[in-house]
Lab assay of single mutants.
Amino acid sequence: AELMTLTIVKGAQGFGFTIADSPTGQRVKQILDIQGCPGLCEGDLIVEINQQNVQNLSHTEVVDILKDCPIGSETSLIIHRG
């Protein structure tokens, strides 16, 4: 298992991935745009978004944080894999 830092840019259609609740937090459910989120894999656990720890937040709260990220700006994700 490892922590990885990824930088992704939000496009007009969003980030290009969906998230779902899991017992340990929000996991990447589906990658819709592989080019839009390079390095991200289905099943990755989202630990931080732009230096904000999201592991204890609800699904709705994490979705809102992602929605609030401006289109075209870089967003830093720390994910836990494995």
Rank of each mutant, 00 (worst) to 15 (best):
D21R: 09
D21M: 15
N56D: 11
F17K: 00
H59V: 08
L6A: 05
M4A: 06
L32G: 13
P23G: 07
F17P: 00
C37R: 04
I78M: 15
Q51L: 08
T60L: 12
L66C: 01
K10V: 08
G82S: 07
L40S: 01
F15G: 03
S76I: 05
S73M: 12
I49T: 01
L32H: 01
C41S: 14
V47S: 07
I78Q: 03
P38G: 08
L77I: 15
L32D: 13
C69G: 09
D44V: 00
V9Q: 08
I31K: 15
Q30L: 15
I31G: 06
F17M: 06
L40C: 01
L40T: 01
P23S: 10
V28N: 01
D68A: 05
E2K: 07
V28G: 01
I49V: 15
S73V: 11
H80V: 03
T7A: 12
E74D: 15
M4V: 10
G16V: 05
I8F: 14
I49A: 04
T60Y: 04
F15L: 13
Q26A: 14
N56A: 08
I46W: 00
D44L: 00
Q30K: 15
Q30G: 07
I71H: 03
C41L: 12
L3I: 13
P23I: 04
L3S: 11
H59G: 11
D68E: 11
E42Q: 15
C41W: 09
T24D: 10
S76M: 12
I49H: 00
T24R: 13
C37M: 04
V28I: 15
V54Y: 00
G39S: 10
H80N: 15
I71Q: 04
Q52E: 12
S22K: 14
T5Y: 04
Q30V: 06
T7K: 12
G72C: 14
F17H: 00
C37W: 02
I19Y: 04
L45N: 01
I31V: 10
K67T: 15
F17T: 00
I31N: 03
T18Y: 10
I34V: 13
S22L: 09
C41M: 10
T60P: 03
I8H: 06
G36C: 10
V47C: 08
C41G: 10
G43C: 03
G82Q: 15
P38V: 07
P70W: 07
I34D: 10
L45K: 10
A12V: 13
E48K: 06
A12G: 13
T75S: 02
N50Y: 01
R81P: 14
P70A: 03
G11M: 07
R27C: 01
S76D: 05
T75K: 05
I49K: 00
E61I: 01
T7W: 06
S76K: 11
I71S: 04
V62Q: 02
I65H: 02
Q30A: 09
L32W: 04
G16K: 11
D33W: 06
A12R: 11
I34G: 11
G82A: 09
S22Y: 10
S22P: 00
I78S: 13
D21E: 11
K10P: 04
E2P: 03
N53C: 13
I8D: 00
Q13A: 10
R27Q: 14
T5N: 14
E42I: 07
D64C: 02
D64E: 09
Q13F: 07
T24N: 12
E61N: 02
G11Y: 05
Q51P: 00
E48C: 04
V54W: 00
D68C: 06
C41E: 13
E42P: 14
D68K: 13
C41P: 00
G72Y: 01
L6F: 13
I34A: 11
G36A: 02
D33N: 10
L45R: 02
C37E: 13
A12D: 11
S73Q: 07
Q52G: 06
Q55E: 11
L3A: 11
G36Q: 09
A12M: 10
T7Q: 07
Q55I: 11
K10E: 01
D64M: 02
P70C: 02
V47I: 04
E42S: 10
L6N: 04
I71F: 12
V62W: 00
I49Q: 00
I34R: 07
M4L: 08
H80Q: 13
V62C: 15
V63I: 03
C41F: 13
Q52N: 13
A12E: 10
M4H: 11
Q30N: 02
H80M: 03
Q13G: 12
C37K: 03
S76A: 11
A20R: 04
F15S: 04
V63D: 15
L32C: 03
I8S: 09
K10L: 02
V28P: 00
